[in-house]
Amino acid sequence: MGQYVALARLDAARPPRVPPERRYLARTADGARTVLVSLPARGADPARWAAEARWANQLSQPGFWPVAELGGTAAFPWHASPYQPVLPLTEALTAHGGPLPEGAVRAIGAALAETLASAHVLGVTHAGVCPAAVWLTAYGPLLAGFGTVRAAAPDGTRRAGRPGVDQESLAPEHLAGGPVDPRGDVYALGAVLAYAATGHAVPERSEIPAGLRALVSACLSRVPDGRPEPAHILAELAPGAAYGTLAAATEPVPLPGRVVAALAAQSAHVLAAELPAHPAEVR
């Protein structure tokens, strides 16, 4: 990975949901800077992945994980961003020991809905929302994995089973190869809320907390036009919240104590980590 030496994988070896990319905590060889580095999923098309990384590098969208640096070769592209303590939503549920409390799900969902609302107004479709692409920080969630669905396969090609694609978060029309559009982001947000609230990839409707059930069901409508707009989702999840304050991630979100502890433990581990004498092969 160029000047960077991998310290550890960000995701567990066998996460419960498909991560959109291979993601590593890494450091410069002189030890001066720590970063998060992402590479294409194994078997993914590196050219399509790199094209989405270039788009992400040009975005300054609040609530999106920033892509600060591009590198590598045509066959082995990567991108990097300055490190901050972060847990994929999948790892946060593992740290918590199960689904998150409804209050935390609402806060996370509201911030994500505001992020998507502001992106869609600008004509930007994230096309990669899924539980493993939601990165939790102490100040709220950020969306990584920009463009995963577009990178997986061109329009007109089925995307089922493609590397890096979380099939349970993919809208039916996109799974079948239909054009990617903002309504698919809403479907994926519904899948994220369902997962965060139940811990299951495909929960029964009765498992979803009653206060979230109708909204999640609407997001997961198989009819694209039946899904709510992100602004409506925001209003349902955080009534009275001032628009433009959540995605900016300037105030802490109510994360469970064990998730906060896991973020702190990661930060301490990274601070104490020494560069390996014999760097392991990136896999």
Rank of each mutant, 00 (worst) to 15 (best):
L7Y: 03
A13R: 11
E21D: 14
R23L: 13
Y24G: 09
R27W: 01
T28S: 07
T34I: 11
R48P: 01
W49S: 07
R54P: 01
W55T: 15
F64T: 01
P66S: 04
P66Q: 07
A80K: 07
V86Q: 15
T94P: 11
T94E: 15
T94I: 11
H96K: 06
G97W: 05
P99H: 08
A104R: 06
V105F: 02
I108G: 02
L112S: 00
T115I: 00
G128M: 05
G128K: 05
P131N: 04
V134N: 01
L136D: 00
T137C: 09
L143V: 04
F146L: 12
A152R: 04
P154H: 09
T157K: 10
T157H: 13
G161L: 13
V165N: 05
E168F: 14
P172N: 11
A188C: 12
A191F: 02
V192R: 00
Y195R: 09
Y195G: 07
T198E: 08
G199T: 09
G211A: 09
S217L: 11
C219H: 10
C219P: 07
P228D: 11
P239Y: 06
V253Q: 00
P256W: 12
A261L: 11
Q266R: 14
V270F: 07
A272F: 03
E274G: 15
P276L: 02
H278C: 14
H278L: 15
